[in-house]
Design a protein around this nucleic acid. Sequence first.
DNA 1: TATGGGTCTCCCATCATGGGAAGGTCAAGG
DNA 2: CCTTGACCTTCCCATGATGGGAGACCCATA
Lengths: 137, 137
Amino acid sequence: MTALLAIRDAARLSGLSAKMIRHYEGIGLILEPQRTQARYRQYSARDVHEMGFIRRARDLGFSIEDIRHLLGLWRDRSRGSAEVKAIALNTIAALDEKAASLAAMSRSLKRLAATCHGDERPDCPILDALEGAPGDG
Amino acid sequence: MTALLAIRDAARLSGLSAKMIRHYEGIGLILEPQRTQARYRQYSARDVHEMGFIRRARDLGFSIEDIRHLLGLWRDRSRGSAEVKAIALNTIAALDEKAASLAAMSRSLKRLAATCHGDERPDCPILDALEGAPGDG
DNA sequence: TATGGGTCTCCCATCATGGGAAGGTCAAGG
DNA sequence: CCTTGACCTTCCCATGATGGGAGACCCATA
């Protein structure tokens, strides 16, 4: 039971790509698995479980270093939840900051696009703004 | 007047870094400038103007390829504004999509963090979710 | 002329991910 | 037994924007 899985099956079950699994192993995020005599990687259900953890963490926007940290906390049954929550709050702040930055760019661009007639005439407030026109910066 | 500028001064005036200026030249975004006999790059006010265009476009979230395209349109006095506006609208859509994705991650994480007491107790809904608990996906 | 600072090119690193080449392995079928 | 096709291995390169640094060169000023 719980036969060992080839990398392709571990990838399919965890939602990571085989490329990513090898990469995460290379940077020490995933432990080196057993190998067959032909050096094929073999993963246990536990390994795949850990890969799922990593994928979900990535989906939530955690950085690799945060995930490294979270994995350590996950394995440590005696840790308090304070540190985990602190990492999550940090990540939330980083995500919000990035989202706000993108939204600000989008807003500026929308303002410019709204006043650009977008036809065959050459005058264009978008290019004017890029040119450095002192208009509505 | 309008003496030629060394790369450092072009960088200062345009808001790009000297590294970036060389890089943009390497990828063909910026034309190769004049050189002194010692092969030092020398930029005209016009060159710096173009660098400013590039920096502002980047600040607005345009991709390098979009900027390449916009520069061509900018130089072409006879082009209509339709194409420029189309590029802008595309970029707006891409920015909004990225921002929405980050915001969604942030929202999920906030929901999890809200129910994590964040103290010395080990139970933690954040880790539970990463573990793959079938709770609130 | 010596010194400090600017510049040159080239290489490497980030971050996450994919593509691809060259070669080894394995299972199934002829 | 051998071929075929699918899979695996490692290694290198690319993205996109940017920085860091090495080693060599140039120039102005004290």
